[in-house]
Write a protein that binds this DNA or RNA. Structure first.
Lengths: 137, 137
DNA sequence: TAAATCTTTGCAATCCAGTTGCAAGCATAT
DNA sequence: ATATGCTTGCAACTGGATTGCAAAGATTTA
């Protein structure tokens, strides 16, 4: 197990079980957000519920965040190292309506949004939809 | 059937069937986005699939737009009269994590978002989450 | 007016992602 | 080594979304 992985687990106070190591490594290889079924395909030997719970554990520990991109399937992507999943850590996501892939736009934080009186923002799910570079010819 | 209703249907080239009139009227009474199950509760006599298809028809005709607020249930809300459901018509939504209600923030359009090269925005699903005024004490 | 056609509705069934209960396996602490 | 607790796998369930099909209703055509 390499150093980056070890660090990610210890940073978040998570025990690095075999399954978690595999899943985290897989997540680190992705450039896109993945769904539970993507994970099932990648790990045919592992049980769906285990993968599900692994993702949920990661989410709770703020190792990953989930995105509702409108496909009906939740997708997950690695958080940045310092991420605390609070409002300031939020970024936009992009969902390609052609290839159905979902990308984190981590370079751009979401602005302060002018809410009605006494409304308080804590989280956000921001998904821009359209065509990604690959599909946009 | 009142004038506003008639106009909404004719604007969108939709036949005003009994069911559609009831559903549209119901939607117009709402201050919040509603889910299919909300609609089922409101119209116990009507069949789920009919309500479902009515919503889908309305959505296609741009009479309503759908919102994924993160509850797992799609919600629907009336579009503004001139809405074309294109990028310029998009607005934020607010989902209260306590009372689970979802509001359209129609007073605020979403800004232009700086996308990676060759990415093209067409739609968006923007949901701010937190506490609404009622739940925020 | 009747027949043919198209649309809408209701019922029943299906799909499938997400989720849970339970028991077995594994790791850690006593 | 024994007890305790977390993790995993299996199987089953849940519930929203969706579809096929036939009946009912509306519209057009002859």
């Amino acid at each position: 197990m390499n150093d980056t992985l070890v660090k990610k687990f210890s940073n978040r106070d998570l025990k690095p079980t075999a399954m978690r190591i595999l899943v985290l490594r897989f997540l680190m290889e992705q450039t896109k957000a993945i769904s539970l079924s993507d994970l099932e395909l990648a790990f045919e030997r592992a049980d769906k519920s285990t993968l599900f719970r692994t993702l949920k554990t990661f989410e709770q520990s703020k190792l990953v965040h989930s995105i509702e991109d409108g496909t009906g399937h939740l997708k997950y992507a690695l958080c940045l190292e310092e991420c605390n999943c609070s409002a300031v850590d939020l970024h936009y996501h992009f969902h390609c309506i052609k290839c159905k892939e979902t990308y984190c736009l981590t370079n751009l934080n979401i602005p302060t949004i002018d809410l009605p009186k006494n409304f308080e923002m804590q989280q956000a799910n921001m998904v821009v939809k359209g065509l990604c570079a690959n599909c946009n010819h």
